[in-house]
Design a protein around this nucleic acid. Structure first.
Lengths: 127, 127
DNA sequence: CTAACACCTGGAGTCGACTCCAAGTCAAGG
DNA sequence: CCTTGACTTGGAGTCGACTCCAGGTGTTAG
């Protein structure tokens, strides 16, 4: 799979895919003889994983550290688990912040809605 | 309430509070005669609201637009509601992305955990 | 009255995460 | 063979959201 296909499939720009590889978020992708990226199944699974983690806001630096450990093999499983657990806690914290905000948004929208209904009634009375 | 107290109470730096005011996220704060910010109840409620919205990732630009409408009075209630509804949709979308990621994190952590348990057993057998 | 410390402003700097560009190479159709 | 369009690299630029700084003013404890 060439870079543009991957880009389209995962809604990540080709520039972003190259950037991810450059900074070590994704290990070097398979290439054709002439040097063009040719994403393998494994490369694509990595892109998918990184996209998912990024979309939840995990910082690039943390993911670089994690992917480095993955490259180093099974001896690093403990360290990897620690990273993921830490990120899970932070993710849960962010989600609960967001839930609070969502509740407030819902409440405000509801208030606006009823204010608008009142205003409409008022107009009807005046008619 | 002086800026430092507000800063401590809401865990926002004094610089950030001034920045929010400068860009219009918060309308000009009450001042003492000598020009020092003296946050009123209302000012503080605004800080609280903005902090909450920002912590859920609502963009500053959107919040500036919203706060501008708030300043313009009741005629803008419809427009405000539209903004909030739009932001609510985006928030829900982000949260569901995060839930997916959380599921994957949980799964990965669980796999690592069982891999580590297996390794331990292996060591026991070898002993 | 002065030292020390919080506050002020305008503007510049930083940081994370891309995003764009120039200048060159490669692949496929006519 | 030549053109056209996708690919390559290294490096610079952008964007959102702060964060810091210099140079000055206000305030309060001793």
């Amino acid at each position: 799979m060439k870079i543009q296909e991957v880009s389209e499939k995962y809604a990540l720009s080709a520039d972003t895919l190259r950037y991810y590889e450059r900074v070590g978020l994704i290990p070097p992708v398979t290439r054709t003889l002439s040097g063009i990226r040719n994403y393998s199944e494994l490369d694509i699974r990595r892109v998918e994983f990184i996209k998912c983690m990024r979309s939840a806001g995990l910082p690039i630096e943390v993911l670089i550290d994690y992917m480095e450990l993955v490259q180093q093999g099974d001896a690093t499983i403990g360290a990897r688990k620690d990273i993921l657990k830490e990120q899970r806690e932070q993710l849960i914290a962010r989600m609960s912040e967001m839930q609070k905000t969502l509740d407030i948004l819902n409440h405000k929208i509801q208030v606006y809605e009823s204010v608008m209904l009142e205003a409409e009634k008022q107009i009807k009375i005046e008619e």
